[in-house]
């Protein structure tokens, strides 16, 4: 195991990353797709509104980007804090 202070800092950096990513995750699915859909009603796309697009397509695309971005960010943090395998 790495020394305690470095692994604590690593864990804090990880938690912060997760928080930011979860906010994006929430806003692009539950937000734009459900709760905020009425606010996006004015923005038309292919015969419907942007909220419908987010609910049926946009959210999935955002999820994909989020996972790979998280994996890349954590690989960087692993090295920075010297905790990689």
């Amino acid at each position: 195991m790495a020394d305690n202070s470095s692994s604590n800092a690593y864990w804090k950096a990880n938690i912060k990353t997760i928080q930011v990513f979860l906010v994006i995750w929430f806003v692009c699915s539950f937000g734009f797709g459900i709760l905020l859909r009425p606010m996006l009603a004015g923005i038309g796309i292919g015969g419907t509104d942007l909220g419908f697009w987010f609910a049926q397509q946009g959210s999935i695309i955002v999820f994909l980007i989020l996972i790979f971005a998280y994996a890349a960010r954590m690989n960087k943090l692993d090295k920075e804090f010297g905790v990689e395998e």
């Binding site: 699915s29 419908f52 049926q56 999935i60 999820f63």
Partner: peptide, 24 residues
């Protein structure tokens, strides 16, 4: 119709949680 978007978001969005909160 639109209501069933829950299936689309639900069955894909869980992977974000899996990747960040559990799998590693």
């Amino acid at each position: 119709g639109y209501d069933t978007s829950a299936y689309l978001m639900g069955w894909t969005g869980g992977y974000v949680l899996l990747a960040m909160l559990l799998a590693p």
